[in-house]
């Protein structure tokens, strides 16, 4: 059976507010799904439910044939769900290399080895360096994460996810706040990851040109509900998206 990720009637309520409301959707390998919607539509909350930072009020999540709804965040990561966060979420006072090395160590399953010094594990360090080169941070290895520019921090955030070698990549606005010349590094990386047809890629993104160039499929969230799902061209053209997301009256073309 091929790898699938499915949410069934996924719902979360915060008091009276329903942030994600009955979202049912199945994601398949080899497919890059863009999740779009206006601010506050519940995109990041939907991500948090999938990667385990939040527990749903109702509904179930299936991954790789198993119900993972009750699994904690670390166990979901181990199962193969990788997550890059929207608000940069790093180990601020550790070096760039150490940030990635920790992710490599986690992926390697080296959790409780306390008998050997860490630098003996050259394989982990080499792998971390390799990933840093891929995200164009190879020359900033020894800098502490806080000292990086915003764009570089975003790249490091992505590097941590790649280091986990997940089956599912969840990008939450990976290029937000990046300068124009930094964006291609991340987009090329996502395009590269897409080459591997065994991976599921989810991408929350606001920039429509990015979505159009990368996505195989677009789903639209609006007020926590799934309002559109389909091929990029169809979804972008649909009246509900034109109105709900792009804020343009039907009939006029979106930029």
């Amino acid at each position: 059976m091929a790898l699938t990720l499915e949410t069934r009637d996924l719902t979360i309520r915060f008091g009276g507010h329903v942030a994600v409301n009955g979202v049912s959707c199945t994601f398949k390998p080899g497919e890059l799904t863009a999740i779009v919607g206006p601010n506050g539509a519940g995109k990041t909350t939907y991500f948090n439910l999938i990667s385990g930072q939040l527990r749903p009020t109702a509904g179930t999540i299936f991954f790789d044939g198993a119900d993972i709804t009750q699994l904690s965040a670390p166990l979901r990561t181990r199962a193969g769900l990788g997550r890059a966060f929207q608000l940069t979420n790093l180990f601020p006072n550790l070096s760039v290399e150490e940030n990635v090395r920790l992710a490599v160590q986690a992926a390697n399953g080296t959790h409780y080895d306390m008998l050997r010094p860490w630098m003996v594990r050259r394989d982990l360090i080499a792998r971390a360096d390799e990933i840093l080169d891929r995200v164009a941070l190879g020359n900033r290895r020894q800098v502490t994460a806080t000292a990086l520019s915003h764009g570089d921090q975003r790249k490091l955030e992505v590097a941590l996810m790649i280091a986990l070698e997940p089956k599912v990549f969840m990008f939450d606005e990976p290029t937000a706040g990046m300068s124009i010349d930094e964006v291609p590094v991340v987009l090329n990386l996502i395009a590269q990851l897409k080459q591997d047809a065994s991976k599921i890629i989810l991408l929350v993104e606001h920039k429509m040109d990015v979505v159009r160039s990368l996505a195989d499929r677009i789903i639209v969230l609006h007020n926590g509900q799934l309002v559109a799902d389909g091929k990029p061209a169809e979804v972008i053209a649909s009246p509900i998206v034109q109105e709900a997301y792009l804020g343009v009256a039907p009939g006029r073309s979106a930029a």
Partner: peptide, 11 residues
Amino acid sequence: ENRFRAEALGF
């Protein structure tokens, strides 16, 4: 440094 992130890495 960041317990939340350590959890998200699978620890």
